[in-house]
Amino acid sequence: MALPAVVSVETLTPEAVAKTIDHALLRPEMTVDEVVEGCRLCARLQVASVCVRPCDVRIAAEQLRGTGVAVGTVIGFPHGSSPTSVKVCEALAALDDGAEELDMVLNIGRLKSGRTDEVRDEIRQVVEAAKARLPGCCVKVILECALLTDDEKVAACRAAEAAGADYVKTSTGFSSGGATLADLGLMRASTDPAATRVKASGGVRTLDFLVECLGVGADRIGTSASEAIIADLRARRAA
């Protein structure tokens, strides 16, 4: 569902907002019942996708089959420090379990060491393996912007784009900071909009902030506050 040319609370519909959302079900203490209920919520809201822990992909795929809501999961989460071979293995296992979208954490330490070629090559290996297994697979690369300088963010965006990633993403939501408008603007300016999209994640808990993120170039929003955000928009439109 296409967003309006001017993104604002007044121009957005609940349906359009829902289709920008990747609903996060990633807390380590979540029970199976909570995962199932979260998936049922996603089906009711008709969000773009649910992002679950790797161990929950089969559960999510069973719950969401036929609903139009995609199943996503995380790779190398949350620190990005797994060897490349492990990230590739995680990606393929997730796809075999029913995932359609993968949010992988790049190797933050290698990026900060200036070893950008290694970062790019690792992303490429995950992207190529995933798309060979599932051609329509969507791969998003998590930068963890709170730990990076602006120059490192730009380098990460360019590496991800060169490697064929579909999205660059601000944050895991499990580090020292989340999405900021400045970071989103920088990420949008550092990638080709025709090739690479931008995902805001970490700390997006209100409708107003979600709209601001979309306004500076985000295409997807990672949040666990989907129900409250959409309910707020419905209430404002009814007022």
Rank of each mutant, 00 (worst) to 15 (best):
M1A: 09
L3N: 03
P4D: 08
V6I: 06
T13P: 12
V17D: 06
V17R: 15
V17T: 12
A18W: 03
T20M: 05
H23R: 08
R27L: 14
E29L: 11
T31W: 10
D33H: 11
E34T: 09
R40T: 15
L41I: 15
C42Y: 15
R44G: 06
R44Y: 11
Q46L: 13
S49Q: 02
C51V: 04
C55N: 14
D56A: 08
A60T: 09
R65A: 10
G68T: 06
V74S: 06
G76D: 12
S81D: 15
S81T: 12
S85N: 13
K87F: 06
A91Q: 04
A94D: 05
D97E: 04
M104F: 02
N107R: 14
R115N: 09
V119R: 10
V119S: 15
R120M: 08
D121N: 09
D121S: 10
I123W: 03
R124V: 03
V126T: 07
V126G: 01
C138L: 09
K140A: 06
I142C: 04
I142G: 00
L143V: 01
L143S: 02
E144V: 10
A146P: 03
A146Y: 07
L147Y: 09
D150F: 09
A155L: 04
A159F: 01
A160F: 01
E161A: 05
A162K: 00
A165S: 03
A165P: 05
T170I: 14
S175L: 09
S175T: 08
G178R: 03
G178F: 01
T180K: 14
T180A: 07
G185T: 07
R188Y: 10
R188N: 05
P193T: 15
A194C: 10
T196N: 04
S201G: 11
S201Q: 07
G202R: 02
V204M: 02
T206F: 04
L207M: 06
L207P: 04
F209L: 04
C213L: 04
C213I: 03
L214V: 04
G215L: 00
A218I: 02
I221Q: 07
I221A: 04
I221L: 13
E227Q: 07
A228R: 08
I229G: 02
A231M: 08
D232R: 12
R237Q: 05
